[in-house]
Design a protein around this nucleic acid. Structure first.
Lengths: 133, 133
DNA sequence: TTTAACTGACACTATTGTAGTATCAGTTAA
DNA sequence: TTAACTGATACTACAATAGTGTCAGTTAAA
C-alpha cells in the first residue's frame, strides 16, 4: 500500500483549489484543468470527500464542489485514512516467530511507537500549509 | 511500495536464526523449516544478503549460510534499503503545482524532515533487539 | 566414482493494487 | 429542450507482491 498515492495527491490538489475559491462551487472539470489532473480520475477521487463531509456538491449546470471544513484542520493524514484506511506500518512486523507473544515482543513495541509518532506528525501537515509561501 | 514486505520479513527471520547458530553454516532448508518460510522464496531472499556482505555461503553438501556482521549493527532500515531501495515516502508529494518551486515548498521540507527522522529510528531497530526477551 | 544435498541463477504463475478511461442515469440552469 | 454537470459503476492496462519450479554447477560422503 502506497502511503501517498494518486488518490491522496489529487485530493489534496483539489482541496487546495477549493480553498482558494472560497464558498463558490467549482466544477470537477475546472479543478482538473487547474491542476492538470485526469478528469475522470478526479471525479472518482472527489466522491469520498463528499461521503466524509469534507466537501459539498451540487448537481446540474453551474454545479460543482466547495470546501466545507477549515483547511487548517484538514490534514494529509486524514486524506490517507480516507483513501487507504487506517495508517499502519505493518500488522505485526513479525507475525509468527519471533513475535509469538505480541506483548513481549520488543520490536513490536518500538514499531508501534515509531508508527504513532509518524502519524502524529502527518496529522500536523494540513492543506492550509500548502498555501503558505 | 510496501515498507516491510515478505522479503524484509523473511530476511530478518533468517538472520535471526543465523545469529543463534553462531559461526556454523546452516542450510536454507533448515532456516525455512525453523521459521516456516516457503523454501524457494527464502532461497531467493538470501542472495541479496550475500551480495551485500551480510552473510557468507558455501555450496555443496553440508553447505549453507552464516552471518558475517554483528547483529547489533544490522538494522531493519538496512534490510529495507536492500530489498526496496532507498527509503523515500514520496518522490515529491506534489510534483507539479503547487510544488513548482521545490525549494520554497513548505510541505516538501516538512515531509523530508519527517522522512529522515523516521529513517533514523528505523536505523536503530536492529536484529539483536529481536533476540531480547 | 557415483550419489545426494546443497547453492546460484532464472523463469514462470497467480493475485492484488494502482492509474487511468468510459459509460449511463439523473439533475439543473438557461 | 438542451447542455453542463454530478453519482455510480464497469472496464482496461500495468506494476508489485508472493509464491513455485527448474536446471546447472559444487561438494561431502558412501
Amino acid at each position: 500500500m502506497k502511503l501517498i498515492n494518486k488518490n491522496v495527491d489529487y485530493a489534496a490538489r483539489a482541496l487546495l483549489v477549493m480553498s482558494k475559491t472560497g464558498g463558490v462551487f467549482i466544477s470537477a472539470r475546472d479543478i482538473a484543468a487547474a491542476q492538470k489532473i485526469p478528469y475522470h480520475f478526479l471525479r472518482r477521487v472527489l466522491q469520498p470527500l463528499i461521503k466524509n463531509g469534507i466537501v459539498a456538491s451540487v448537481e446540474g449546470t453551474k454545479g460543482g464542489f466547495k470546501l466545507l471544513v477549515d483547511p487548517a484542520k484538514l490534514s494529509i493524514l486524514k486524506l490517507i485514512s480516507i483513501y487507504n484506511g487506517k495508517f499502519q506500518l505493518s500488522e505485526c512486523m513479525f507475525r509468527g516467530k519471533p513475535c509469538s507473544n505480541r506483548r513481549t515482543c520488543v520490536l513490536r513495541k518500538e514499531v508501534v511507537k515509531i508508527e504513532n509518532d509518524f502519524a502524529e506528525r502527518l496529522g500536523k501537515l494540513t492543506i492550509s500549509k500548502l498555501l503558505q509561501k
